[in-house]
Design a protein around this nucleic acid. Structure first.
Length: 423
RNA sequence: GGAGAGGUGUCUGAGUGGUCGAAAGAGCACGCCUGGAAAGUGUGUAUACGCCAAAAGUGUAUCGAGGGUUCGAAUCCCUCCCUCUCCGCCA
């Protein structure tokens, strides 16, 4: 959520930046400013009337104590009008604030100046491509066939006990999951992230804090009985750890990592590209989250991007880094890098990580502040990224490492899997 | 799930209708004291939204959340949320 004061002071810039994100309702900006104007006017009226009523109440108290009952009654008689006005202004204010809020949550975050213009994924900018695209023999298998061949994943069994998109990992497939999770966590800890283990369900306030609510409820599983949402990513609980928190300057940067399963309804996605592990309702992911001083957030974003890249390099995966164009970015992000690995058997890129700087978009909702050098409270910047999401990593590992002998496990993973070959 | 108790500032904790944004203590910050520290001592120590060109200042709101009663609510009433204790159930 953008700050109203920022919108007021930077109206033209806001409009210009929103255009980069292909925002369709630029009129909202002026509507918000107008609503804020009337909010202020109403508040002045309310405050002034309340001040009069408060001081009258004080006088009455004093008079009563001194036994001057009649004088007190005289003043009391005058309070009725104030009371009515206060109620009226309060109601007005509540209505104004509500419609201000309703409009404010419709505004996406402003994209960073480096974000390319564009609407479709094709317009994302390739920042770098690592190495050459791996070539596989013509008879190379896609991962879902490899998973069946080596009995790593049982999709049918998942359908039986839950439904499509909930695979059952078996044998070395299950071991590989656990190995990857531990590898990613260990690497994150080496990079200075503190591991946390968080709830997999969150309340509405948390959903709001990171920007999933309102609006994206359709993408989350919801437990109606207890009003809880299954997390779509660990970003939600980990970032919300710092909701309503004022950090000391020396507590920044906060660096947390954690592994969780992620649950996504993925309503409306069908077709060939969702086959196998490409798109699931439940998958495992290690997430890295930082809360930082705004001055450093773009340096931190680069560091996080490099951390993710180092994981891909260690796993020996061919990848590229994209800077998302305005139209392809998420609602709350100011700058996002996507990492994609090349699926040689599917002959296409698979998104395996997304690293974003949210600037104050989340912290404004979270009321996540820190005390700056002047001792004043200031909104912190939040960032997060997948490091990494498992299924597509597994998919490309299986596909790209397939040989006549079986599937070669990357060397860095062997201490975790305790086997070198899947065969 | 049943019964009871309770939610006050960074923490402990007082406060049952007015002088309460809130006693006291602890913590923390700064100063004094000290060779240095401890002890002692003094001062300060919530957040948000406004007004003001800005600082100073000042108004309003906030004692779990929301509503109500009242001239006036931390205090009384209602609803909800949460915590603790006992019982039940249970990985």
């Amino acid at each position: 959520m953008l700050q109203v004061s920022y919108i007021r002071e930077n109206r033209d810039k806001v409009l210009e930046r929103l255009a980069v994100k292909n925002f369709k309702q630029p009129d909202l900006v002026d509507e918000i400013i107008q609503l804020d104007d009337s909010r202020r006017q109403t508040q002045v009226k309310l405050d002034n009337t309340s001040a009069e009523a408060n001081s009258a109440a004080k006088q009455i108290g004093e008079l009563m104590r001194n036994g001057k009952k009649e004088e007190a009654e005289t003043i009391k008689a005058k309070t009725g009008v104030w009371k009515e006005d206060i109620k009226k202004y309060n109601d007005e204010l509540a209505i104004i604030e509500d419609s201000l809020y309703q409009k404010l949550v419709l505004l996406p975050n402003l994209p960073h100046s480096s974000v390319p213009k564009g609407i479709t994924p094709e317009e994302n900018e390739v920042v770098l491509q690592n190495g050459t695209i791996p070539q596989l023999p013509a008879n190379a298998l896609p991962h879902w066939e490899l998973a069946a061949k080596y009995k790593l994943i049982d999709f049918e069994l998942g359908v039986k006990i839950t439904g499509a998109g909930f695979p059952v990992y078996t044998n070395k497939g299950a071991k590989l999951q656990r190995a990857l999770i531990n590898f990613f966590i260990d690497e994150a800890e080496k990079a200075g992230y503190k591991e946390v283990s968080v709830p997999l369900m969150v309340n509405e306030a948390s959903g709001f804090g990171t920007g999933q609510l309102p609006d994206k409820e359709g993408q989350m599983y919801f437990v109606t009985e207890d009003n809880l949402y299954l997390i779509p990513t660990a970003e939600v609980p980990i970032t919300n750890l710092y909701r309503d928190v004022i950090l000391k300057a020396d507590e920044l940067p906060v660096k947390n990592c954690g592994h969780t399963p992620c649950f996504r309804r993925e309503a409306g996605s069908y077709g060939a590209h969702v086959r196998g592990l490409n798109r699931l309702h439940q998958f495992d992911k290690v997430e890295i989250v930082q809360v930082v001083n705004p001055e450093t957030s773009y340096d931190v974003l680069e560091q996080m991007s490099l951390h993710v890249q180092s994981l891909l390099q260690k796993l020996g995966l061919h990848y590229r880094v994209l800077r998302l164009c305005g139209g392809d970015m998420s609602f709350g992000s100011a700058l996002t890098y996507d990492m994609e690995t090349w699926s040689a058997a599917q002959q296409r890129w698979l998104e395996v990580s997304s690293v974003s700087n949210f600037e104050t978009f989340q912290s404004n909702r979270l009321k996540l502040r820190f005390r700056n050098a002047e001792g004043k409270t200031q909104l912190a910047h939040t960032l997060n990224g997948s490091a990494l999401a498992l299924p597509r990593i597994v998919a490309t590992l299986l596909e790209n490492n397939q040989t006549e002998k079986g599937i070669k496990v990357p060397e860095v993973l062997v201490p975790y899997t305790r086997f070198e070959w899947i065969d």
